[in-house]
């Protein structure tokens, strides 16, 4: 049931107005931002936990829209929808793994409404773009009446459904560095292809030290026996739905760092990952399934990259 007294939903037309509405938001009595509403709206009936009491609709904040390239990074406004990401020539060129992740979220209608800022702020451990943001070393530009600051992705999700945002802060933009030669792979495993919440979701990213500059998106390195296999640097592996928040798996990254995508390395990395994550049983899957599938999905990514 809705709350007996429904406060009006504020619909600010500018960022300063939104900051003013959020100024008295507190942990005890938060003002919940809503944009596409794809997460907030399923809470509004109160059937899943406590519904938000006060809400502020961000849809009119033009300042938070748009996709741009700026100083070696793609900058996504927080209100960028998944459909906009899928269609953006900038994203398709520089962030194909993010485009792929956006395409796996819900289906067309959800992708038209849902925003990447909302995916991050909702802080679900199963949020599909979040491992990509971690693997790409994204940073969140956040703001409030008190000023602006940046929070790196690996410091953003601090506990189950909790972010590093203060109650009065909004995500403004997400800044994703684009380096030449960086490769990223994405994989989501759910019950079906559309409209599924992930059982396991992962993103693997590396720089191929021996690859030609800008070879970034062209993918597989020459197969075994047909030339050298490259050496990986700056490897990042991030997963969702295997912990209380989206996580980097640094022990497994260490196995892959300065290594080549050979069968031996794939075996070692898969084993390391199975030992490093501690998923749980829940309505969508089991801990055992998640551990096995995460390890096999990583193994396959390495195999495909190695071309064997």
């Amino acid at each position: 049931m809705p709350a007996p007294v429904e406060p009006p939903i504020e619909t600010p037309a500018s960022l300063p107005e939104a900051y003013a509405v959020l100024a008295d938001s507190s942990a005890e009595d938060p003002v919940t931002p809503i944009a596409g509403g794809t997460d907030v709206m399923v809470r509004i009936t109160g059937e899943i936990g406590e519904p938000p009491r006060r809400m502020v609709d961000l849809s009119r904040l033009r300042e938070l829209r748009g996709i741009a390239v700026d100083r070696g990074a793609v900058v996504l406004g927080a209100l960028t929808t998944y459909t906009e990401i899928r269609r953006s020539s900038v994203c398709r060129e520089h962030l194909p793994a993010l485009v792929e992740a956006a395409a796996t979220i819900g289906a067309g209608q959800i992708q038209n409404r849902g925003t990447i800022g909302g995916n991050a702020a909702n802080a679900s451990p199963a949020g599909d773009t979040l491992p990509v943001l971690l693997a790409l070393d994204a940073a969140f530009e956040v703001g409030s009446n008190r000023g602006q600051r940046a929070i790196t992705a690996d410091a953003f999700w601090v506990a189950y459904r909790r972010t590093a945002l203060a109650p009065d802060e909004l995500i403004l933009r997400i800044r994703i560095p684009i380096g030449s030669g960086r490769e990223t792979r994405f994989r989501k495993i759910g019950t079906r292809r559309a409209q599924a919440i992930s059982k396991v979701v992962l993103a693997l990213s590396w720089v191929d030290q021996d690859g030609p500059p800008g070879s970034g998106r062209v993918a597989p390195i020459a197969p075994t026996g047909n030339g050298p296999i490259g050496t990986w640097r700056d490897v990042r592996l991030a997963l969702g739905s295997v912990a209380d928040r989206p996580i980097r798996t640094r022990a497994t990254e260490a196995v892959l760092e300065a290594a080549s995508p050979t069968p031996e390395i794939a075996d070692a990395a898969a084993e390391a990952l199975a030992g490093e994550i501690h998923p749980i049983d829940d309505v969508r899957s089991t801990a055992e399934y998640r551990r096995v599938v995460a390890a096999r999905a990583l193994h396959r990514m390495i195999r495909d990259a190695g071309g064997w």
Binding site: I9, G37, T38, M41, V42, D57, Q109, N112
Partner: peptide, 24 residues
Amino acid sequence: SNCGACTIHVNGQSAKSCTMLAVQ
């Protein structure tokens, strides 16, 4: 927002009208 029976267009984009507020 699972079934899609409530799909309409809002500013030319398809949307599920059960997961949108009228004020939006």
